[in-house]
Design a protein around this nucleic acid. Structure first.
Length: 811
RNA sequence: GCCGAGGUGGUGAAAUUGGCAAACACGUCGGACUCAAAAUCCGAUGCCCUUAAAAGCUUGGGGGUUCAAGUCCCCCCCUCGGCACCA
């Protein structure tokens, strides 16, 4: 038989698979479904990254295994193709982004096919296809109609050199991603989405899904729920209360002053009551100009200005408290105001700096520390025991909190309240290459959504993709497109010229794969009922708080408005895992500038796709970051070669050796279990062990056992598996076979290697039949010369026996 | 600062969850084949002492629990990821 030639083999089987449609998922099937999803890539000009290959191959293995286990598997692929690099390329070269996108997606597709990935290509989607983004726009309109999309003036990142608004992800270290200029803030009217309405559900429903714990934790932290209370502080001489959010009501008896954010509306409302208003407004101005970098600087000196002439009353001590403003109090969190006391480091520092009186009311358990706290030498921030707190003295912080809230709310002075760090989602981008926001502004009717029958609002062709310099999107320059009729009154109106962020298309794409050609709906109800939710979704950790959270939110919304059938439930993904990044050799990030990018095409050309697949799975644990090592690829090629040589050239046994058969069945068990746990590296090492045993066995495998091995091998190295499958005389495809079962009886050990320890140290090993009793083992061990010598005259104190494993003699 | 993950040979890593630490692979060294090289095959390979055997040491550091600890508990150090003036 000829030498192993992956080039010849792989092309042939890819053609066969893709032309026969074996990987097509069937809607309306009676079979059990399995929906496997990997994040669709942004088709960049650089081509497929070996990191893509890793997660796509991993889930390809699961998809192939599931098909062999009899499932109707949906494993689709598409393109998240709106995005900046394509737009930048268009600006530079003057080529239309859609032309670039077409070129890049063609390249990506062929690279994926060269890897033998079993995607169902009949369901391919592209977020930049008007037939697709028609529904992205439709979702926006539903958000608007349900009061979840609104316009708001907010400060955006502004590059003064390029004269363009930047998304957070375009700001690297406070500088513009393109030109490196320091980014400024600029106020601009933006479309916002009220994701905060869903904050509670987004946290609560995490209980019902199977996500990696670290993913859940990260989402919870991002949403940032805190339980506390809003307390009212009456302003002296004005019929007004200042409301303050706190999670530490237990410290309220020590509250001696109040701090407002510089932007707090109270300052505007009572300008004339504030004696030093000029100073206060100057402070506000200064805070506004401080960049994010300065504001997050830990060591920054605390500053503040007192609102002279304003006093409030502490609702529990009834004492007068001065009111200050300081920029560490954030306007957008809680009520934009805090009460300050000796139990918060920042308040403590500020009071010391400006000579504001402090009082303590919580003490730690430690007596020495308590003295320091009482003397105001140290700031105690933790929970402790209350004192100076009237009837609440002696209570622990945690017990005091609900009691104090209850007591205050009875008097109408407080309400318990839950706040979130999560903020509403800025949805406008001043770019060309994105979905146009389907809204129209009419002087008479205000903002109006485009009529659904007029969707999609197609991106018009422009001559220049360059930003306008005024902060408007390039679309604003196309007068013909901007001018339109009001959908409501038919009067003259203007289109929104901002586009959507690149998260918009990926919010709901998993619904489109289910029914990719539907032009009446996002996706057909009965098909959604069958396929949803996604059974297993894998993606990068970097998408945990953006894409993953956004898409969960949008899905909940679609479910609420019944665009998704009720029976599906309100969580889109049953299970979510994450892969580790593939780094360049030496452990640094792969990048063009470092010249350490590995192109999968090169590896396939040199070693074959099966080898690349196996290497990517063997290189290390799937969830872990891992450096590329071309030497390791060689080792995997040797393994693949070995399988080929053994299967193709060794004479077939009439009956497999008993010992080898045993190893085979252990391997079937191990590979099956490891794949389910994403432990591909150990699955492969166990197959290597099996192949080594096969190589050294006397007679080798018989036809049936070789066929079983090929079946477990085929998800990993599908091309070679098919080639060897037909060489056994089969006419069908290996990937359509049943996943083999292992024989429990064969796996059972008849003889075991028993460890003999003296005082916990391994001194000997004896082989004996499995299931021997302690007595039998003891007899044998104590007779052994080696052990006799080691025990010598010492007294045997104790003997520990672990069934089928070890015996430990304590002397 | 807080939260999360991790630290095991020269390298990537295993370790059935408390029971032989280093499987599998890379690399290195030695041998076979060859005029020679590559490829391939065989053997050795945690460290230390040693011609060898035997002993001893070893999972970031220190302490503890246990007949037995990479695994459990306490303290500390380091690396990576996330959040970060969030009241």
């Amino acid at each position: 038989m000829a030498k192993y030639n992956p080039k010849k083999i792989e092309q042939k089987w890819q053609n066969k698979w893709y032309s026969s449609g074996v990987f097509k998922a069937k809607n309306g099937s009676k079979k059990k479904k399995y929906y496997l999803l990997v994040e669709f890539p942004y088709p960049s000009g650089d081509g497929l990254h070996v990191g893509h290959c890793r997660s796509f191959t991993a889930f390809d293995i699961i998809a192939r295994k599931r098909r062999m286990q009899g499932y109707n598997v949906l494993y689709p692929m598409g393109w998240d193709a709106f995005g900046l690099p394509t737009e930048n390329y268009a600006i530079k070269k003057g080529v239309h982004p859609s032309v670039v996108t077409k070129k890049n997606t063609d390249n990506f597709r062929s690279q994926m096919q060269n890897l033998g990935l079993s995607f169902d290509w009949s369901r391919e989607i592209d977020t930049t296809d008007p037939k697709y983004y028609k529904w992205t726009q439709w979702i926006f309109i539903q958000l608007f109609k349900n009061g979840l999309a609104y316009k708001s003036k907010i400060s955006i990142n502004w590059c003064p050199k390029d004269k363009i608004g930047l998304a957070n992800e375009e700001v690297i270290d406070g500088k513009c991603e393109r030109c490196g200029t320091k980014v400024e803030k600029k106020e601009k009217d933006q479309w916002m989405i009220k994701i905060t309405n869903y904050a509670e559900r987004l946290i609560k429903d995490l209980e019902d899904v199977d996500y990696l714990e670290k993913i859940k934790t990260q989402q919870r932290d991002w949403i940032g729920q805190s339980h506390g209370a809003v307390v009212k502080f009456h302003v002296e001489g004005i019929d007004e209360d200042l409301e303050v959010f706190t999670t530490r009501v237990d410290t309220i008896f020590s509250g001696t002053f109040l701090i407002l954010s510089p932007e707090h509306s109270f300052i505007d409302k009572y300008r004339n009551k504030i004696e030093n208003i000029e100073e206060v407004l100057a402070y506000r101005e200064g805070a506004k100009n401080a960049s994010d970098m300065d504001r997050t600087n830990q060591d920054k000196e605390i500053t503040g200005v007192q609102l002279k002439g304003i006093m409030v009353r502490n609702p529990v001590t009834n004492e007068e408290m001065p009111v200050w403003t300081a920029d560490f109090v954030l306007d957008h969190y809680g009520t934009g105001a805090v009460f300050a006391d000796a139990h918060d480091k920042r308040d403590f520092k500020m009071a010391k700096k400006y000579g504001i009186p402090l009082r303590t009311s919580i003490k730690p358990d430690n007596e020495e520390l308590t003295q320091k706290v009482k003397n105001l030498e140290e700031c105690f921030e933790d929970d402790g025991t209350l004192y100076n707190s009237q009837e609440f003295d002696g209570l622990k912080s945690a017990d005091a909190r609900p009691k104090i809230i209850e007591w205050l709310s009875a008097k109408g002075l407080a309400n318990s309240k839950i706040t979130y760090k999560l903020r509403d989602w800025v949805f406008s981008r001043q770019h060309y290459w994105g979905e146009p926001i389907p809204m129209v502004f009419c002087k008479k009717c205000g903002w109006q959504p485009v009529k659904e029958k007029d969707l999609p609002i197609k991106l018009p062709n422009v001559k220049k993709y360059k930003p306008t310099g005024t902060g408007e999107s390039p679309l604003s320059l196309i007068e013909k497109w901007v001018k339109t009729d009001c959908p409501n009154c038919k009067g003259p109106a203007q289109r929104e010229t901002d586009t959507m962020p690149n998260w918009a298309g990926s919010n709901w794409y998993f619904l489109r794969y289910i029914d990719p050609k539907n032009n009446k709906k996002l996706s057909d109800d009965s098909a959604m009922r069958y396929w949803m939710p996604v059974d297993w979704y894998n993606g990068g950790m970097e998408h945990t708080t953006l894409h993953l959270l956004y898409s969960r939110f949008i899905f909940k919304f679609l479910w609420d408005i019944k665009a998704v059938p009720a029976s599906v439930g309100s969580e889109p993904y049953k299970k979510r895992t994450s892969h580790g990044m593939v780094l360049g050799e030496g452990g640094i990030k792969m990048s063009k500038s470092k010249g350490n990018v590995i192109n999968p095409d090169t590896i396939i050309k040199q070693y074959g796709a099966d080898t690349l697949r196996i290497y990517e799975m063997f290189m290390g644990p799937f969830e872990q970051m891992i450096p590329w090592d071309t030497k390791g690829v060689v080792g995997c090629r040797r393994f693949v070669d070995k399988v080929y040589n053994l299967a193709a050239q060794k004479k077939m046994a009439t009956k497999t050796d008993e010992a080898l058969k045993k190893v085979l069945h252990k391997t079937i068990k191990k590979v099956g279990e490891d794949v389910e746990n994403l432990k591909f590296n150990t699955a492969i090492s166990s197959m290597m062990e099996f192949v080594n045993a096969w190589q050294t066995s006397e007679n080798g495998l018989d036809k049936k056992d070789l066929a079983d091995f090929l079946r477990i091998f085929s998800p990993f190295a599908p091309h070679l598996a098919e080639e060897l499958w037909v060489s056994l005389g089969n006419k069908d495809l290996c990937c359509q076979q049943k996943w083999p079962k292992y024989d429990e009886k064969l796996i059972e050990e008849k003889r075991v290697l028993l460890i003999v320890q003296i005082n916990g140290k391994v001194r000997d090993k004896i082989e004996m039949k499995a299931g021997s009793s302690q007595k039998e083992v003891e007899k044998l061990v104590l007779k052994s010369e080696k052990i006799k010598v080691l025990i010598g005259d010492a007294e045997v104190k104790k003997i520990v026996f672990v069934y089928n494993k070890l015996i430990n003699i304590v002397i």
